[in-house]
């Protein structure tokens, strides 16, 4: 079997899967509903993050839980900016107790408009998924973030329900699996995309005293573990070995790809900062 035959076979199978899922194929309308993130990530995702899909976000290690939520909130901020609507942030009680409650001034400093956020606390995971489904189906929010801790009830059926609700309402579901650190490859679900997020060293700024630097803008190391892109669209797909480094610009509400992953030397004070990618 030549490589060409194989690619064709894969494409055929993808069409078959799409047909089973009641989706004609990647229609142009759906391809248009994608949110661009950054150049390299968009190429892998086939033009950006689907605006009506289920995207899972898992932390790489226990200490990266807040980085994962930060990434989800950054995505929501972008969706809110594009659509000009309210986003809904839901979390399981236990996740909030374990990882800390979401902090209003911090969210505002992160670039989120508090008057356009609604927070929902769910007593347990099934209630969380039910609430997410209802929110997605209503078609009102720009995005729905759900932070789940107990993932026992999150299976193929549950994720499929979320995906269908996202399709029906045309809003993205961003599910943060807070307790699934390091297990991003392990669970199977109907999600379109799965990210594994770790915190990344930020571009430190020189401190006046010449000692240790000052922390810079939030940076993420993003691993795209799963990317289901339509057969017709052009995308590289998931490559779990590749790590994208992104920096969140809370003023511009956009991601940056730093040209250098780590600052080699501090920028001179009398010169403009290094050009952004």
């Amino acid at each position: 079997m030549s490589p060409g035959d194989r690619a064709e076979g894969v494409a055929r199978l993808r069409c078959a899967v799409a047909a089973i899922e009641g989706r004609r194929a990647a229609t142009p309308a759906r391809a248009a509903g994608r949110l661009p993130l950054t150049g390299a990530l968009d190429r892998a995702l086939g033009g950006g993050l689907a605006a009506d899909g289920l995207h899972e976000i898992a932390p790489a290690s226990p200490a990266d839980g807040s980085a994962a939520m930060g990434f989800a909130l950054a995505l929501a901020a972008r969706f809110m900016a594009v659509r000009g609507r309210t986003a809904i942030v839901m979390a399981e009680d236990f996740a909030l107790a374990e990882l800390g409650a979401l902090y209003g001034p911090g969210l505002a400093a992160f670039g989120l408009d508090l008057s356009r956020l609604v927070f929902v606390r769910a007593p347990d995971a099934p209630a969380l998924f039910q609430a997410m489904e209802d929110a997605l189906k209503s078609g009102a929010p720009a995005a729905v973030i759900g932070e789940a801790w107990r993932l026992k009830s999150y299976d193929l059926a549950a994720s499929r329900r979320l995906l269908l609700a996202a399709r029906a309402g045309g809003a993205p579901a961003l599910l943060t699996a807070a307790s699934a650190y390091g297990a991003a490859e392990a669970f199977s679900s109907a999600a379109e995309t799965r990210f594994e997020i770790a915190a990344a060293p930020s571009a430190h700024l020189a401190s006046a005293g010449g000692g240790r630097g000052l922390p810079g803008a939030p940076a993420f190391a993003v691993r795209l573990v799963k990317a289901r892109i339509g057969a017709g669209s052009v995308g590289q797909g998931a490559d779990p070995t590749r790590i994208f480094r992104l920096t969140w610009r809370s003023e511009e509400l956009s991601f940056d790809e730093p040209t250098l992953s780590l600052p080699v030397a501090a920028a001179a004070d009398d010169r403009p900062r290094a050009t952004r990618a």
């Binding site: 107790a97 800390g100 409650a101 400093a109 992160f110």
Partner: peptide, 14 residues
């Protein structure tokens, strides 16, 4: 001017 690192945390422990 160019530093937009948030000065407040995203999550606060009770």
């Amino acid at each position: 001017e160019a530093c937009d690192a948030p000065t407040r945390p995203l999550r606060l422990f009770e």
